[in-house]
Amino acid sequence: MPTTTAAPPGPSRDRLRDHLLAARLAGPVATTREASLRSYRLFAARDPRALLGIDPERDWRQPDLIELMAEKCGVSADPEHTFGHDVIDPDLTLAALDAFADRLREIARRAAPVLLGTGHPHRLLGFYAELAAALSAAGCDVLTPAQGRSVDILTRFGLRTHRLEYVRGVGLVRPAGPERTGCEPGAHTHSPLPVRLALDAAADAGGPLPELVIGDHGWVCGAGQLGFEAMGPADTDDPALFVGQAEGRVSVVVPLDDAVRSAYYRPLIRYVLNRASLSQ
């Protein structure tokens, strides 16, 4: 197995907890209670916009989802609490980061193939790119299937054609058409279609297939629904990942605000890579 170099020491657990609160990655977050409750209602109604590719086995009602999210995220369990900022328990975030890092360590130890992708490239691309680099250095095959292929995604403006691309080993989608200078690194999407396209392409090519998919939104839910191990972060208005975890199709979900400044995720990267004994 290729030798890995220990990452520079990451922040201590106490310092990382302080950072989570200061950066509003946990504690009171920007996501509102109203937005979260709306997502729970949509999920209970099995609206594809909230399912993110998960086909729930049980009938999840809104009270069930509030109870689940209170347990896994730390949001208020009071169904009468209907406005204000949502809250994430930083200790739940830290525990999930530990589980996330432990799973990375095992994957790296076996140099297993991985697939990474994000629907939040403007915020989380750097987070995943650091993971991709560390896993590649450990001997993992960081897969990039279906590079440049088209995928039609339903947006709030209607059906739009996008291209699946990989930036620093991380899958994302961009609107089809000529490149525009000064645009975002990719499109924000909750769709599971990009990961389905990637996994189909990998299978059609005869493999390898990923032993682990790392990402968010539809990348995690879409992969988990197809039977691939998947893990990643999720905000309080993303109940699909936590339902997937509760039903055994998502292995680790890290509760945190997924839309803060990109730089605020760097201490999390250092902590995870240090715990996983991976190089940066």
Rank of each mutant, 00 (worst) to 15 (best):
G10C: 12
R33T: 06
I107K: 10
L65N: 01
R41Q: 13
L51M: 09
T144Y: 01
N274Y: 12
A240N: 03
L116H: 10
A134M: 09
F228L: 11
E106Q: 15
T236K: 02
L268I: 13
L197G: 00
F100L: 03
S39W: 09
D91A: 10
G158C: 10
A7R: 03
S262F: 02
V250Q: 03
H81G: 08
L125F: 04
T155Y: 08
T4G: 04
R123D: 12
R15Q: 12
L37F: 11
Q245W: 07
S76T: 04
R168C: 14
A45D: 15
I88P: 00
D152G: 05
E165I: 08
M231V: 06
A246C: 09
D64G: 04
W219G: 08
T31Q: 10
L154H: 12
L193D: 13
V29Q: 07
M1L: 14
A6K: 13
D204C: 14
Y166P: 01
D238E: 15
T31N: 13
G126V: 07
D200A: 09
A50G: 05
E71L: 07
Y265P: 05
S136L: 14
H19E: 13
D18N: 12
L21S: 02
E247H: 12
R61N: 13
A26R: 03
T155R: 06
T93P: 07
A263K: 14
G74K: 05
L226H: 01
C140D: 06
T144S: 06
